[in-house]
Computed example of a mutant assay.
Amino acid sequence: MFLIIAKVAFFFLRPSNVILFLVLGGAVLLLVKWRRTGTTLVVVGALLMLACGLGPVGNMLFVPLESRFPRVTEVVTPPTGIVVLGGAVDTVRTERHGQVALAESAERVTAAAALARRFPEARIVLSGGQVAIFPGTVQEADAMVTLMASLGVHSRRPVLEDRSQNTWQNAVYSLDLAKPQPGERWLLVTSAFHMPRAIGVFRKAGWTGITAYPVDYRSTSDHLGFTSVSRGLRFTDIAVREWIGLVAYYLTGRTDSLLPGPDGVRK
């Protein structure tokens, strides 16, 4: 139920949809001769499309998220294990076409596979269930196993957490499977823009010794715009969704700070 509520709510909050609602609403009002209000809505919608579609809004929203944790250039000490969050596989297309279909965050799995090959003794937890409103039969964790096997990681090596539908469940269910012990060091692999919320949730769930390993960077510069309206709006949609998630998780007590950072850094 929470999944459905979240998806329906974001449908109305998604910036690209809000812009469409403004323009369509304004057009309707112009037809019924509410010219001033109609014109205002159309103009606001057009300005937002320019700002979000061609302007730097998307990058500006991504930068503080992606720069919150430093990029890891080298892992010297072998980790106890690696937790990989879902988002790398499109389960709907995977089921429909019978082969693993990559999503936008495919680097989560490719980076994790590289780590797994480098540290053959490290345990691996793949966390991701069905996040579609109308779920099929393919669980993301299962598809990630297939993808990692194609990248040289034996299919029997990962432990699968295939029930989670959100980041909080990623943390709770993975913790229950891995049962990390004091003194162990685990790498958390997810997109850089998602890392603040993910780390905050894993800490709140009680996972100690978790270390951020951000991948899948999206931003280019906080002052550069886009040459494609669709690309700019897509960036803005993803970034706004993550900021809404941060606020929602903070207000519901699933993180202990609004923008979790490295140990000792809170905001």
Rank of each mutant, 00 (worst) to 15 (best):
S174L: 07
S221I: 03
V8C: 08
H97N: 11
E107P: 02
L85E: 01
T39H: 00
M144R: 05
V229H: 04
Y173G: 01
D256M: 09
H223G: 00
A141H: 04
D142Y: 07
G53L: 11
R203T: 11
S174A: 08
F62R: 10
P135K: 09
A51Q: 05
G200Y: 11
F69C: 05
S127V: 03
I133G: 08
A9V: 14
D256G: 08
G136I: 02
V159T: 13
S221V: 02
L54Q: 03
L48Y: 09
A88E: 10
D162V: 00
W34Q: 15
G261C: 07
L20I: 15
I133S: 14
F235T: 08
I244N: 01
R231Y: 00
E104N: 04
I244S: 07
V18A: 06
G200R: 11
A113T: 03
I82N: 05
P78W: 05
A248Q: 08
V89H: 03
W207F: 15
V265S: 13
L177D: 04
F62T: 04
P135L: 09
N166A: 11
P214M: 09
L126D: 08
A6I: 04
E121C: 00
I4S: 13
D142E: 14
P260W: 14
L13Q: 07
V215C: 06
T227M: 13
H154E: 10
H154D: 12
F21G: 05
L224F: 09
T236N: 13
T252Q: 12
A205E: 07
I19D: 13
L160A: 04
V72Y: 09
L54I: 04
G25R: 05
K33H: 14
M195N: 12
T211E: 15
L233I: 14
L151S: 02
V43Q: 07
S155K: 11
K7I: 03
L65M: 13
I5W: 08
V23D: 07
A192G: 06
M144E: 12
S219K: 00
A212G: 07
R254I: 05
I133K: 00
V145Y: 02
G183I: 13
L3R: 08
D256I: 01
V229L: 14
D256C: 02
N17V: 13
G128M: 11
R117L: 09
R123Y: 01
A101E: 14
L233H: 12
G245A: 10
L224M: 12
T190P: 02
A27N: 08
T167V: 08
P70F: 02
G264S: 10
G200S: 12
S105Q: 02
G232Y: 11
L233P: 13
M49F: 03
R203W: 15
V72N: 03
G136C: 06
E161G: 12
L251K: 06
L54H: 10
T80C: 03
A239E: 12
P15V: 01
K33P: 00
R35P: 00
G200P: 12
S221L: 02
G38R: 12
